[in-house]
Simulated assay, not measured.
Amino acid sequence: MQIKRNTALMVGVLLILAVAAWAVTRPAKPRLAAPTAIPVRVVSVAQQDVPRFISGIGSVLSLHSVVIRPQIDGILTQLLVKEGQSVKAGDLLATIDDRSIRASLDQARAQLGESQAQLQVALVNLKRYKALSIDDGVSKQTYDQQQALVNQLKATAQGNQAAIDAAQVQLSYTQIRSPVSGRVGIRNVDEGNFLRMSDTQGLFTVTQLDPIAVEFSLPQQMLPTLQGLIAAPTRATVDAYLGADTDNQTGDLLGEGHLSLIDNQISSTTGTLRAKAEFSNPAHKLWPGQLVTIKVQTALDKNALVVPPTVVQRGLDSHFVYRVSADKVEVVPVQVAYQNSDINIIKGVQAGDVLVSDGQSRLKAGAQVEVLKEPPQVIHTANAQVQP
């Protein structure tokens, strides 16, 4: 009996110890944490005029580039210009030995004088024969022969005059003049060289630098846009940059010109259309053969609502932004009219609305936010490229 009591007492003690151990080791009930504000950065919607551009890679071309070649064979006697010198149209560049041509010219003039003297005698005789033929002083045959002699001497005189003209043309070829205004290139010959008309290399080139052109290619889908720009009363502006990226205007501006020409056909192999722009180039920043990035302004969006690209979020079916109202955010669906790496033009918000630009990954509609204090973000749109 005593044993049963001891056993029951021991079981009770063990139960008490087990309950105490469970009470000590059981997990505490979780406490509901107070909601914390999500830190975000914000930007205000700006309203301003934004130009739209199309971009492409172009090659600088001279409007006139001439290889100076001799038009007669002869010895180069003088070079009157230096390499790199600027010349005007009509300036004397070089001279070729003209002694042989001058001798031929003098000979042709002497032959003309001889023919004219013979013609004068023949005309006097013809007049005399005409008077005598009235009274049958000379035969009709003699008169006709004299008339034929006069005609023959007239033709000879005309041939001599033509020989004089040809010699004068040849003499003019001994003075090589610049056909265009431009810059002299590297010289290929020196004074004393014998020049031939068959020489393909030429003496040097004269290349016009101002004004100058840039030829570039664009996708064929841009044809209606370019046609509209050409037909517009105001010429479309074209900017040329050195080393510029089509998305970032980091290159140096080399010149501002205007769209001047669209090619008359589209390349069937590349599906691109060639166009040309003309630039005023007084400082010679644009150089023939240079590769540049061109930007053609196609339109101007007035009073556009502009935000940085990080503001706009993409949902399953549409775009949206987080708008801050008091200390909470709301989801606002928007339409993206244009976009690039610098700006987005959107619809669906108002100018001055405060939108979240950083920290959207933790947000949802109605979330409480804390706006980080920092200098206001500046939206650069002066040269922003917006694809049409």
Rank of each mutant, 00 (worst) to 15 (best):
E256D: 08
I176N: 02
P179R: 03
D165L: 14
I294R: 00
S217T: 15
D210Y: 05
L372K: 10
P51A: 04
R323G: 02
N193M: 12
G84E: 06
L223D: 07
I68C: 04
E83I: 00
V324T: 02
P70G: 05
Q175R: 08
Q201F: 08
G137L: 08
V334F: 08
P224C: 02
T7G: 05
G185H: 01
L305E: 01
D327S: 11
V336N: 03
I101Q: 01
L123S: 12
D342Y: 00
Q249H: 09
F204S: 10
P308Y: 01
K82N: 13
L261C: 08
G352D: 08
T156S: 15
G359S: 06
D342V: 04
G90Q: 07
I176F: 01
Q297W: 08
G58M: 03
L14R: 04
L203N: 02
T200N: 09
L17Q: 07
Q265K: 14
S268R: 10
H64T: 04
L80G: 03
T237C: 03
V67H: 05
P309K: 00
G137K: 13
L32Q: 13
V40R: 03
A157S: 15
G182W: 00
T381F: 06
P288W: 00
R31Y: 11
R235G: 07
L153A: 00
A131S: 10
M1P: 10
A326E: 15
T142H: 14
L355Q: 00
D190Y: 12
